[in-house]
Structures are given as C-alpha cells and as structure tokens.
Design a binder for these strands. Sequence first.
DNA 1: TTTCAAACATGAGTAATACTCACATTTGCA
DNA 2: TGCAAATGTGAGTATTACTCATGTTTGAAA
Lengths: 211, 211
Amino acid sequence: MEGRTVEQDGQVGSPRRAPSQQRSRERVERMLAAASALIAQQGSDAMRMGEVAEKAGVSIGSLYQFFPDKRAIVWALAERYTAESQACISGALRDVVDAEGLRQAFSELVDIYYQLFLAEPVMRDIWSGTQADKALRQLELADSRANAEFLTAVLKRLQPGADPVALETTAFLVWQMGEAAVRLAISVDRQEGDRLVAAYKRMALRELLEG
Amino acid sequence: MEGRTVEQDGQVGSPRRAPSQQRSRERVERMLAAASALIAQQGSDAMRMGEVAEKAGVSIGSLYQFFPDKRAIVWALAERYTAESQACISGALRDVVDAEGLRQAFSELVDIYYQLFLAEPVMRDIWSGTQADKALRQLELADSRANAEFLTAVLKRLQPGADPVALETTAFLVWQMGEAAVRLAISVDRQEGDRLVAAYKRMALRELLEG
DNA sequence: TTTCAAACATGAGTAATACTCACATTTGCA
DNA sequence: TGCAAATGTGAGTATTACTCATGTTTGAAA
C-alpha cells in the first residue's frame, strides 16, 4: 500500500530518534493524536502520512524524524493501549484466590474488552491489522503472554497440584481464544455477538475451573 | 500499499470479466499459478502485479482484464481453498452419529487443518490477511458459518433436546476458535504449537460433547 | 469463405503516496 | 556568546497499482 516498502521484519516500533527536548516531545504527542483521530475516521490503512503531518501541524519531514515508517506510528499507539490494559488486567486478577473470584474477575475482564472493542474504533482497527503486520503480531503475542501469566498465577493458586506447563498452555490458549472471540463478536451483529461472547465465557471458565 | 486505492468495501472477488474463451481461461490459470508461487515465496503483500504478469507470461493489462485489483487475485485463490476444504469437512462430519465418532472426526479435522497451515505458505499468508481485508474476512466468515453448520447438524443429532440456537452458537464459536488456535499454533515454536492444538481439542470436544 | 463485432492482448503512461535529504532553524550548555 | 547537537522543513525521488488508446484474435452469422 505504499510507494516504497522497507523492513519486512518485525523490528519496527522504536522511534528513529527519541525526542529529547520538551518541544519535540509535545510535537510527537500531536502526531500521535492526529494519527489516532485519522485512524478513528478512516482506518489506519487509509491514513495518509501527509494528512497526519498536516493535522498535527508539522512537516512531513518531522514525522519521519521520529517514526521510521507508517507502521511505527500505529505500533506506538498499540503499545500504549497494551500498557494501559495490562495494568487493568493485572489488577483484576491479582487478588483472585478462589473459583468464584476467578469467575467474576474473568467475566468482567471479557466484558470490558468487548465493550472497548465496540466503542474504540482505533483499537479495533489496530488489532485488526495484527495478523498482517509482523511487528504488531509480535506485540500482541508478547502482550497476550504477559496477560496469560497473570491468569496462570491464579490457576496455580487454585490448582496447586496440576502440571504447571499444562496450566500455562491453558491460560495462554484461553486468553488468545478470548481475543479471537471478541474480534469475531464485533464483526457480526450485536445480538449474535453477545451470544458468542457469553458462550465463550462459559467455555473458558469451564476450562479454567475444571482443569 | 498501492498507488491508488479503490473499493474500501468488501465487494471484490468477481473477475472484472469472466474469461469465455479457452485461450483466456488458460491464461487466467497461469496468472493464478504465478500469483500462488509468488505468495509462497514472499507473501501476498510483497507480491507485485508486474511480477505476476511477467511470471505468467502475460501483460499487465491482461491481468487487469480479469482481476479488478490485486486483492481480487488473492481472493480468487482463497475461494478455491475454501471450496476444497469445505468438501473435506462436509465428508468427515456427514456420517457422525455418536460421541465417539464426533471425537474422532473432529480431532482428525483439526489435525488436517493444522498440518495444512504448517505446510502451505500460501494458505497461511492468505488467511493471515483475513483481518485486514474486508472481502477476505467476509469469505472466511461465510466459510466458517458453512462449516459450523455441518457441526451443528451433528450436535442436533447427538443432543436432540437442546436449544438449536445455542447449538449453532456453540458450533460457530468452536469452529472459529479452532481457526484462531491453529493460527496461533503456527506462530509459536512447534512444540508449544502442538501443545496448544491439543489443548484446544480437549476444550472444544468437552464443549461439543457435554453441551 | 468472408465479415465483423465482441473478446482479448498490449505496455507506455498516469496518479498516488511513502519516504529522503540537503539545508535552515532552534535549543541547551560550556 | 559560541557552537554542536537536536530539531524542522518541504520539494523532490522512487515505487507501484491501475488505466486506456490501440492493435490482434476468435467464433459464428451471412
């Protein structure tokens, strides 16, 4: 989708140059805000670098001063979302000590995630591109693993005798299935989406609670 | 990723003009074969229309005679895969009449699908782009629904008393989870992938058999 | 066999867009 | 105050999807 394709690998993400001065840090914020607004409007694929620069009130050259390419902007936004949600997830699962607690916390997390995807076009767009963009895929996998670890910790508490590797596998799988389920749910009509999410919850909780 | 972006909707797929003569039908085959080879080598994103034309031994104009845009080529390949696999799935589930039969047939289907993704770079590539490309997403959803229907039929046979809508939801969800699980499995190392697929099978079968 | 319209084939040309780079300006600090 | 590093600029470059005017082939009707 661009004139010149660089970097087929997954090594994007880090700014070409980190803004060290106050002025440039503010400008980078404006760039990200502009990108976010444009993605919300038309999707990251249709987002044009020229538009981002214009909306942020900077030149196209400044954009490339801090972001090596278009994907890096999306990646930067994605990274923020993951950091934010990770805190939320960690908090929700940290204090779970029994089955009922897990049931409640898990159900609530799924709901939050579902609502977030329904409400946030930027988030939806970013994680839609996950499969195609290797850097995003890596970020998502890493994030998912980190979140699954919180879940694994809970499971180890609830089932001290179980095989740790099996618990890790279960937690990771259940977590990824949850992301897939929510993505599926938002791509069908609301009623069916609700049913699918509810069905996922049942399935996941049975797996988590009954080993 | 292209110079000019057309059609943001999901209405691609059908050739701009169906080849009616023998000669052009052969040429279209060559185009698809060339595209397939290039996708296997470098992925559909890096596939260039000029390369496809050259490899197929046709002019760039001829390519666009039968495919309205780049995505349409990928779509055409995807459509073939779905048609092929649908027959396989339908056959495997048609004669299932008891729990043990479902267990066997389902397990075998998951294995086949997993092996296919491990072995076929084209398939992997195509279904990776699923999330980003709306036309592909629609095709996959339609395909998944069709396959889930075979599964629903089995469930209705095994659990005549259950709520049909619930069975449909379960079948659709389980099927989609399977696709997600396999895609996850191939993006981690082989050992973990095997574990994840096995865990998915257990989870899915429990859901399918125990309601 | 001739004819001719529709199907097919061609590839130089167009448009769009990601990204560069040579040069100008600003900042923080010795 | 001087100056090097950081930052800012935008016209220009490269690449690529896609078009279109023009030529060629096909199959069937006359």
